[in-house]
């Protein structure tokens, strides 16, 4: 029983780490540019497939390093060509655009790599369990959680210690004033979009190693990631992180006692948070809308 419980908590933590990684990217883009990026899951799939294609040439570690960067590059391009045209307009436009983009990315990956799940080879030593008692704790799963936490830590360092990060945080509250202080906000939004997509790409490579790859790999993650943002509080990145981990672990725990409710619990949590604390767990006052 303890084993089963731990197994599911750990599973929840992994899923939660993915939600958090996705949701942080979504949050960055939403906070600075006001765009709800429905195509985020599509970029995740692109990251995974790029790694899959690159792996025969540069190995797992090379692919892990390069594929998210390439995904981010595609993100920069997409922002430059399409998304930036819709800034300042009714949010409905960008919503429709990214919604369409999500289909394009999904069908594009299906066209190039096929609809069937393709296997994704990770180094052998990573696939074995670390101990008999904790059979679920493979090297890869542990590595994945650690890497996600490292990536999140690096993101928070960037946001708090670099000029780019400070400008992103400042611009999320008041972009106009940032521009009046001499910062090219077109470039700022472009880089910020790329940063968000980088995290989707990274999540894609890691998810591929655990689940294998198929074109719809991102769609299952996108709704919970939005919910993570709402639970954590709109506008708060620490909140987004907390929200992602919380709903991941909650669905893991519920799986132990009531497996069929493991998805519903996410929505129930959102409902409870919205009733008790409408601005989300760490949301700022006055940003409820």
């Amino acid at each position: 029983m303890t084993q089963l419980f731990l197994f599911n908590v750990f599973n929840g933590l992994i899923i939660g780490a993915f939600y958090a990684l996705m949701a942080l990217g979504l949050s960055l883009i939403l906070n600075l540019s006001g765009v709800i990026n429905f195509a985020h899951g599509g970029f995740l799939a692109v990251g995974g497939y790029l790694a899959y294609t690159l792996m025969p040439f540069i190995g797992f570690w090379g692919a892990l390093a390069v594929a998210p960067l390439l995904t981010a590059l595609i993100g920069l391009l997409v922002e430059f060509v399409l998304i930036r045209r819709l800034y300042g307009r009714d949010p409905l436009y960008s919503l429709l655009l990214t919604f369409g983009l999500a289909f394009i990315l999904e069908d594009g990956t299906r066209y190039i790599w096929g609809a069937a799940t393709v296997p994704f080879d990770i180094p052998d030593w990573m696939t074995t369990a670390l101990s008999d008692q904790f059979f679920f704790l493979t090297g890869y799963r542990l590595f994945m959680v650690l890497l996600v936490f490292a990536a999140v830590a690096a993101l928070f360092l960037l946001l708090n210690k670099t000029r780019l990060g400070l400008r992103i945080r400042a611009g999320s509250g008041d972009l106009e004033t940032v521009s009046a202080l001499g910062v090219n906000v077109r470039v700022l939004r472009n880089l910020n979009f790329g940063l968000g997509i980088y995290m989707a790409g990274l999540a894609g490579v890691l998810a591929a190693g655990m689940l294998g790859l198929q074109p719809t790999i991102g769609s299952a993650l996108i709704m919970p990631s939005f919910i993570a943002i709402i639970v954590g509080g709109l506008g708060s990145l620490p909140g987004t992180l907390l929200g992602g981990l919380l709903i991941g672990v909650a669905s893991g725990v519920v799986t132990v006692f009531f497996p069929s409710a493991s998805e519903a619990v996410i929505y129930v949590m959102m409902g409870v948070v919205l009733l008790v604390r409408p601005r989300g767990l760490l949301g700022e006052e006055g940003r409820v809308q």
């Binding site: 400070l166 400042a170 509250g173 008041d174």
Partner: peptide, 15 residues
């Protein structure tokens, strides 16, 4: 003022 940034951070935003 950028309300969620510290004084020191506010000073690092401008070009």
């Amino acid at each position: 003022i950028f309300a969620n940034l510290t004084v020191e951070e506010n000073l690092k935003v401008p070009l």
